[in-house]
C-alpha cells in the first residue's frame, strides 16, 4: 500500500501498517515555532509513547492528530499530518476526525452527568442507534471499571475517585469505537496504584486500538510502549522553547542503545 512507504525514516517499523504519519510538520502559535520538522509514522495497534522534557511540544503534537489545536486561535501548521494516507488538514471536517481519533486528557474530565450518560454521550452525539445499555456495559468492561460501578451507573461521574474517573474517561473515549486513542499524560494526576491499573489497561487496549501516549515518566514509557519517540527542546532567541523530534524507534532501542547522544543523556536522567 502507498502509505507504508512513509516508514522510510524508521526502517524498523516496516512490518506494521502506518496509522498516523507526519511529514515535515512545523507547528506555530502565531509567529512562534513550537515544534519543527517532525517526520514520524505511527504504527497500527501498538502503543507509541512520546517522551521528552517539558516544553518539547509532545502535547502540542498529539493535539495536532485530532485537530484539538484548532481551538487555539493563533495555531497553524505547515507540512502534512496524515491518517491512513489521508491529509487531516485538507478538506476534512475536524469533528469527523475526532470521532475516529479519541482522546484521554491529563486531568480526568468526566462530564457532570451520570456514569451511564458519560459513556452514552458519544453514541448520542454521533446519532448512533445502538443498544446503549450494551454499549455502556461493553465500554466499562473494556476499561476494567465495570465491576466497580455496575451497581451505581446513575451516580454522577464526578463522585468517583481520580483513578476511576480516568478509567471512565477511557471507557468514554473507546465507546465510539475510534481507531486511535490519544492519551495526554493520563496518569500524571493519579496515585501509583491507579497508575498501574491504567497502564495494564492500556496494554490490553493496544490489541484493538492504536494508542499514542504522551508521558513525562520514562519508566512508564519503558513499561508499556512498543515504540518511543524522544523530543527535545531548545531555547530560541527570544527565550521561548521550540521542540523537535530527536529519535523515534522501538522502545527497547531508545532505552538500550539510542542512536543519539541527547536521547542517551535523557533516558539516563542526565537532564530534564
Amino acid at each position: 500500500m502507498e502509505h507504508t512507504a512513509q516508514h522510510t525514516d524508521v526502517p524498523a517499523l516496516r512490518d506494521t501498517e502506518t496509522v498516523i504519519a507526519t511529514e515535515q510538520l512545523n507547528v506555530y502559535y502565531g509567529d512562534f515555532l513550537a515544534l519543527r520538522n517532525v517526520n514520524m509514522a505511527i504504527p497500527e495497534r501498538k502503543v507509541t509513547a512520546l517522551i521528552g522534557p517539558s516544553g518539547c511540544g509532545k502535547s502540542t503534537l498529539i493535539r495536532c492528530f485530532n485537530r484539538l489545536n484548532d481551538l487555539i486561535d493563533s495555531f497553524h501548521l505547515d507540512g502534512r499530518v496524515t491518517y491512513y494516507g489521508q491529509d487531516l488538514y485538507q478538506d476534512v471536517d475536524a469533528v469527523q476526525v475526532r470521532r475516529r481519533i479519541g482522546m484521554v486528557f491529563q486531568q480526568p474530565n468526566p462530564f457532570p452527568k451520570s456514569i451511564y450518560d458519560n459513556i452514552a454521550f458519544g453514541a448520542r452525539a454521533t446519532g448512533l442507534t445502538t443498544d446503549l445499555d450494551e454499549l455502556v456495559e461493553r465500554s466499562l468492561k473494556r476499561s476494567a471499571l465495570w465491576e466497580e460501578v455496575k451497581d451505581k451507573l446513575k451516580t454522577n461521574g464526578l463522585s468517583l475517585s481520580g483513578g476511576q474517573q480516568q478509567r471512565l474517561c477511557i471507557a468514554r473515549a473507546i465507546s465510539t469505537e475510534p481507531d486511535v486513542v490519544l492519551m495526554d499524560e493520563p496518569c500524571s494526576s493519579l496515585d501509583p496504584l491507579s497508575t498501574l491499573k491504567i497502564e495494564s489497561l492500556i496494554r490490553e487496549l493496544a490489541e484493538e486500538y492504536t494508542i499514542i501516549i504522551v508521558t513525562h515518566n520514562m519508566q512508564q514509557a519503558a513499561r508499556m510502549a512498543d515504540y518511543t519517540a524522544f523530543f527535545n527542546a531548545e531555547a530560541t532567541e527570544d527565550g521561548k522553547r521550540s521542540g523537535y523530534l530527536v529519535e523515534f524507534a522501538p522502545t527497547r532501542k531508545i532505552f538500550d542503545q539510542p542512536a543519539q547522544e541527547a536521547t542517551r543523556n535523557y533516558v539516563n536522567g542526565q537532564f530534564g
Partner: peptide
C-alpha cells in the same frame, strides 16, 4: 467489534 471503518477515508460530516 472493531472491524468498523478502520482505514477508510474520513467522510464528510
Amino acid at each position: 467489534s472493531t472491524s468498523g471503518p478502520k482505514g477508510k477515508p474520513i467522510e464528510a460530516r
